[in-house]
Write a protein that binds this DNA or RNA. Structure first.
Length: 748
DNA sequence: CCGGGGTCCATTTTT
DNA sequence: TGGACCCCGG
């Protein structure tokens, strides 16, 4: 290996780079320089001549990861790019194979790839045709059942009815089969199909499989802990010949079980690939010992791990701060203040992130940041190619490229309104079905008969006329110009120009952007393939902004300062995860907490609120068990007295140390209503004396009558240390911290 | 065909 | 609480 490659690699990384033959599992803990090892390995394979670019298969989950890898390998090799290799997402690579072998699975090579929106619409149609009550059986639920089947590479003939007998009286498998048939008729694939079809292709077609097995001498897989069964089968089939497969992953960062990922894949690696070399990357280059210690202590509560001991040298750094606050609003205020303080000290906002469990949590922070005038961005959210206007524009272009794209036809035939409503579409469908025609051809035929009302017929005629003209234009017009013409002449742009809603200007802006993006591609078809598979947003990193995102979205990122709010039982670990998956769910939640903590380079601040507004009503919250699981020596409790029960004594300090959060608490309308509901008696929060709320960690016994500021009067049911289960007179049973209640006779 | 109002529901998400 | 979705009336 040239010294330029091995330079700066530690021993484990060098091992991972040099062990080229045979199966290798690279267990790469958070922040251990995984990408570096991985890209160097690729560069090494190419540079040493062991593999030509076309003989390498390198797979990632996201386009972003693929892009990064490409850039870094090219950089190592000192050339602008590497041509002809197979580096991409599972889906993009599977699509590439499938385009070549389409006939073998009953598709034409120009099949369209449906996004989840199209998928759902199609599923709805199938359900309607089967007279299934959409209210009782939401199409979304069926979609997710089918997706889980596809994750396991289960074709309709291989699913058993008991797999989902609860859905529509056991009809899910039938609906699945019908849906698949519809897809074939439309010459279309959904995302799950790309892999599933590929697996079927390999399983049923030895010659094809052998060809690809021969071709790919070296396989490399990133984020192996996130692979599902279909992806696993796909890889295993491809790797069988040369057995040079290197999988990189971290079982502790497996957080996508709910969407079909199987941690089992990584846990089983040695059995699947006997003689595998296991390389552990355990030296962490990202976080301080305190952060690492906190994260390691937390994750050690999970069973069935492959086990790694992350270490780092250097200064201990700051312990993880744990802060309790009165409610979500106070929490947002706290985070805002902390950020402003950091900013004053010269810290860049781009090095600060707030990582939440659920998307809804971002709102409180946004509101606070707007008030403070603090620049922030919410990562995630609707993506460019998912916006309505973009999807419409794409449908025009898709229909233009393939006139038999019925889904595209349906989407835009009445956008803008041309009087081709439901009635006309119904007739079109009938004619199409009867004659085995595409909707477009059916439309052409209908312009020559009297089956439609004259008005609709005229509309159809001009609609077709437009497409005929554009197809002529296509022959000599550069495609960005063509796209512009289409959007103009169809009246689509005008539709938004005339729209006076606030979003309209933004939509027009997006359409312009689409045309610009189009110009970067050689052909229209090439562009359309790109948008089907590469639907990610390019993020704007030019501005100094605080990032707000979910824990899931944060995987793979790092920040100097990380805020981890909402560490409360029920929210995090999330109740639903616990209900649906019990211990498995809890462990995945814990891994999520681990991912969150390990994003921090210098400081991590965990917080929780004692009261959280959930679905419009107030709920008492108790601190997350994950807080208890952070080792004492790596954390510091600085919660307001009484808010954190478990170690209220441990941190001592002034009696009412951080009580300003209570003093500041304003009575919001929602709180007011909640209190009225709870006790019929309005108590002035401001007047409530601090003494009355002094910590009461013990002294309550079952049947004691107590009073709570938000929930009113109640009777103690159970006592668990300082956590009480109280049956409130109004509002049912709740768990609250003892310090939040006072004996009923002491309440005024 | 539009919009008002009622109802229902509420993780995590990439491709 | 608030958003998405559906139904019905104009």
């Amino acid at each position: 290996m040239p010294p330029a490659f091995s330079e700066g690699l530690n021993e484990a990384q060098r091992n991972a780079v040099e062990q080229l033959e045979g199966p290798v599992l690279m267990l790469a803990g958070a922040g251990t320089g995984k990408t570096k090892a991985l890209t160097t390995r690729l560069a090494h394979l190419l540079y040493s001549g062991r593999a030509a670019p076309g003989q390498l298969l390198a797979v990632t989950f996201t386009n972003k990861a693929a892009r990064e890898m490409k850039e870094r390998v090219a950089e190592l090799l000192g050339r602008p790019s590497v041509e002809g290799w197979w580096l991409g997402t599972f889906h993009a690579l599977a699509a590439r194979i499938l385009r070549r072998e389409a006939e073998a699975v009953g598709l034409k090579s120009n099949f369209t790839i449906l996004d989840s929106d199209d998928q759902l619409r199609l599923l709805k149609q199938v359900m309607q045709a089967e007279n299934i009550d959409e209210k009782a059986w939401p199409p979304r639920a069926l979609m997710s059942i089918i997706e889980r089947w596809k994750d396991r590479a289960l074709t309709p003939d291989r699913v058993s009815s008991e797999d989902s007998s609860e859905f529509a009286g056991g009809r899910a498998p039938t609906l699945y089969a019908l849906y698949q048939r519809r897809l074939k008729e439309l010459n279309a694939c959904d995302f799950g199909d790309l892999l599933m079809h590929c697996v079927s292709l390999f399983q049923n077609n030895e010659e094809v499989l052998r060809r690809y097995q021969e071709q790919f001498r070296y396989l490399l897989v990133d984020e192996y802990q996130d692979t599902n069964i279909a992806q696993y089968l796909w890889l295993r089939l491809l790797a069988q010949k040369h057995r040079n497969i290197c999988c990189v992953g971290d079982d502790d960062q497996s957080i996508y079980g709910w969407r079909g990922a199987e941690v089992g894949n990584i846990l089983r690696f040695e059995q699947d690939f006997p003689g595998a070399h296991i390389v552990r990357l355990e030296r962490n280059y990202r976080s301080t010992p305190n952060i690492l210690g906190a994260a390691s202590g937390l994750i050690s509560h999970n069973a069935g791990r492959l086990g790694k001991t992350l270490w780092t040298d250097g200064d201990q750094g700051e312990p993880v701060r744990v802060r309790g606050l009165w409610d979500g609003e106070a929490e947002a205020r706290f985070v805002g203040d902390e950020i402003e303080a950091l900013q004053t000290k010269g810290h860049a906002l781009s090095e600060i992130a707030i990582l939440v469990r659920t998307g809804a949590q971002t709102r409180e922070f946004e509101e606070r940041f707007v008030t403070l005038g603090l620049p922030y961005r919410v990562v995630g959210g609707p993506r460019f190619y998912e916006r309505m206007e973009i999807r419409d524009a794409l449908a025009y272009l898709r229909l233009l490229v393939s006139m038999d794209n019925d889904l595209a036809f349906e989407r835009i035939c009445n956008k803008p309104k041309r009087g081709l409503g439901e009635a006309a579409l119904k007739t079109l469908h009938e004619v199409a079905r009867a004659g085995g025609l595409s909707l477009f051809d059916a439309a052409r035929r209908l312009t020559e008969t009297d089956e439609l009302r004259p008005q609709a017929r005229r509309a159809l005629k001009s609609f077709i006329g437009l497409f005929d003209k554009w197809r002529d234009d296509m022959l000599q017009m550069p495609h960005p110009e063509l796209a512009e013409t289409v959007l103009e002449e169809s009246g689509y742009t005008d539709m938004w120009r005339q729209d006076k809603s606030i979003e309209a200007p933004g939509r027009l802006e997006n359409l312009k952007e689409l045309i610009d993006a189009l110009a970067e591609f050689e052909t229209l078809a090439g562009f359309l393939e790109h948008v089907s598979l590469v639907m990610d947003n390019l993020e704007d990193t030019s501005q100094d902004q605080v990032s707000v995102m979910t824990l899931h979205a944060a995987k793979g990122l790092e920040f100097e300062t990380v805020f981890l709010p909402g560490w409360e039982e029920g929210l995090f670990p999330n109740q639903r995860a616990l209900d649906e998956q019990a211990l498995k769910g809890l462990e995945e939640e814990r891994r999520l907490a681990y991912v969150g903590l390990t994003r921090a380079k210098v400081r991590a601040i965990v917080s929780f609120a004692a009261n959280r507004r959930l679905y419009g009503s107030w709920a008492a919250a108790i601190p997350s068990r994950f807080i208890d699981e952070l080792p004492e020596e790596h954390k510091v409790q600085e919660s307001d007295q009484g808010l954190y029960g478990a170690s209220a004594q441990a941190w001592g300090g002034g009696r009412f140390g951080g009580f300003d959060d209570w003093g500041e608490t304003r009575v919001s309308p929602g709180m007011m209503r909640a209190r009225e509901r709870a006790s019929d008696k309005v108590i002035d929060v401001q007047a409530q004396s601090v003494e009355k709320l002094s910590p009461n960690t013990a002294g309550y016994a079952p049947k004691a009558r107590v009073f709570h500021r938000k929930f009113g009067y109640g009777t103690v049911d159970m006592v668990d240390g300082d956590r009480l289960t109280i049956r409130f007179d109004h509002g049912g049973e709740k768990k609250v911290m003892a310090s939040f209640v006072v004996p009923a006779d002491e309440a005024d």
